[in-house]
Design a protein around this nucleic acid. Structure first.
Lengths: 353, 353
DNA sequence: GTGAAAGCGCTAACAG
DNA sequence: CTGTTAGCGCTTTCAC
């Protein structure tokens, strides 16, 4: 997995010394200076070390179960080879996907990933903890607010950072997906199945993502020549409770209910569906559901929820790759918008004849 | 939150120097030696520093926006003030709860938490990464396998570790919950509601937790004078797909189906319920469901799932507290079993008359 | 009460 | 090709 071959033995250093071996130990045992040992071990550039010496060093290292002390390396090089990722919460599958993508990618490239939750508000303490204490070389940012203030704080940190699934102004690095097009396609699929009264459970409209999804929804309506009915739009935000309440509000309205609803995110959709069940309505016979974001949760719901896939894991991986490249000077910036994923049809959408 | 008072200003060090301030900078500005500055700043013991000097140092530190370099501190003290937590995966709400509990507690006590996924198998590489590279002072372990081999690996690491929601032999530290009693109570509640044919979707029986829950289930049956019917037990494991398949197997059986099923964990229950829906059966009218572990997922399912709460967050917090106490020499060991939580009644269990 | 000095384990010039 | 030297930023004896 991490490149090292099956090293059956226990990782503990059962070398002759009563402690973990240091570079000095290796050097002494190999009969060279520690600087030489360092050179060899880190396989630096055009190996300016005699083959025989190299061998001796490697042997010594192996025998002593030598593992370089990362802390010392960090102090010396002022690079920690770790990345921070900051998300509002870890319970939401959307963020979990991002974390998984980033974490795998980081591991493959030999970086550690420190995960921080902000709990929904910008907490500059979080950044501080990670960066100012020299723990991370760069930041992956997937917090909610995309305000200028946050961008300033981040920029002031003096380490590279990349927004994941977010956007933050002209200069900021980001990896996004084309949410407008995704939401358009999602809504469109509902229209294609004969729906005319399509509700939207939206995110708070000061959020960039929420706005984009709303925009895609409206455009699909418009292109199909359907009227936009504001009474069919409610703000659910991104959580379960919000989805529940927003759906309730729509159901409570007088006038014909929607035949379908396009929800801004998975967890809100779960809440909304619960509301519909509670109202004694059937999904999809009475109301169809379609949600932005795919995930295993979609299969747990009843009925299984049709979703529009967003390649969050890949996006996070790309952001991580880019961040590492930036850190290693192989790259300057990244401003990438990938297409949204496919429509994953399950059982929550009915075709109206 | 982290003790510091509202420090409006940006965390970036806009001090006179073109870089982050070091202890030396502070010392010079305060007109003292860096050792003195260090003493003052870390508020060491019976302050053997004149009040006036203390003040000067604090002022200098503030003006320079001084933040100690944790890496340097680590190297010097060989303590990183960070903890590792290792879980099989981060998508499962059970582990998310553990992570949240540990993470909050760690933060409060000024420790960082490094989260690692093993992806379901013991990966000693993971431990190595965390420990051998001097990144963490101790480990919280919530991986699946509780085999002796793993315990040996962990012990060989030479850092304190605590199992969370796991058990690992007589010597290992752990924070567990009384799962036998919990499972007993859960099953019992089904019996009390008139159920006689109660199925169990179990975890793999080489897992300690799975065994305990199974045991509680059997004991409840026994105490109620109900026969144990092996054809009512299937191994689902802890995931959705497993739950789906296991439930399918039970439904496929000839002979009377169960009227209720007690599931080993939330996610498996979600899968099992999907199977039941697919079979065209109604929950709870045809089959009642009750699951071990509570979480917001329970409210997303249809119908909302009755669960037995397990205080994972608190357990993780207690384990974290204990680990820190051990690291700081205020404690030797911890072997704690807390009671399982309350039955959270939702809509998935029907009372049979 | 405070300063001087040593050194954690490592890397990176710079010599030789 | 390899060794010497000089720290990274901090804590911690040990003197004064």
């Amino acid at each position: 997995m991490s490149g090292r071959k099956a090293d059956s033995g226990p990782p503990e250093a059962h070398n002759g010394l009563g402690r973990r071996a240091t570079l000095k130990d290796v050097a002494e045992r190999a009969g060279v200076d520690k600087s030489t040992a360092s050179r060899v071990l880190r396989g630096v550039g055009p190996l300016s070390v005699r083959e025989e010496t190299r061998l001796r060093v490697f042997q010594a290292a192996e025998q002593l179960h030598y593992q370089p002390n990362k802390i010392a390396q960090s102090l010396r090089t002022s690079r920690s080879r770790s990345l921070g990722i900051v998300v509002p919460q870890v319970i939401n599958p959307v963020y979990t996907q991002i974390i998984v993508g980033a974490s795998n990618c980081a591991r493959e490239r030999g970086y550690m990933l420190l995960i921080s939750q902000t709990g929904d508000q910008i907490d500059s303490d979080v950044y501080e903890q990670l960066v100012q204490q020299n723990r991370v070389d760069g930041l992956l940012v997937a917090t909610l607010r995309d305000e200028a203030a946050q961008m300033k704080t981040l920029a002031a940190l003096g380490v590279p950072f990349i927004l994941v699934n977010r956007q933050g102004g002209a200069e900021a690095n980001y990896v996004m997906c084309d949410e407008v097009e995704g939401a358009y396609r999602a809504t469109r699929s509902l229209i294609d199945r004969g729906h005319r009264r399509i509700a939207h459970l939206a995110g708070e409209q000061d959020r960039f993502n929420a706005k984009m999804r709303f925009q895609g929804y409206r455009k699909a309506l418009e292109d199909a020549g359907l009227p936009f009915d504001p009474s069919l739009v409610e703000v659910s935000g991104y959580d379960q409770r919000g989805g529940e309440l927003a759906m309730q509000r729509i159901l409570d309205r007088t006038g014909p209910p929607p035949t379908a609803v396009f929800v801004v995110t998975l967890v809100a959709a779960a809440g909304a569906m619960a509301s519909v069940h509670r109202a004694g309505l059937a999904i999809p016979q009475d109301i169809s559901f379609l949600s932005f974001h795919n995930g295993s949760l979609a299969d747990m719901l009843y009925p299984p929820l049709t979703t529009l896939e967003v390649p969050l894991e890949q996006m996070a991986a790309q952001a991580t790759d880019a961040l590492i490249e930036i850190l290693e000077g192989q790259r300057e910036a990244i401003q990438l918008t990938v297409p949204a994923g496919a429509l994953v049809e399950r059982k929550s959408v009915v075709k109206l004849s």
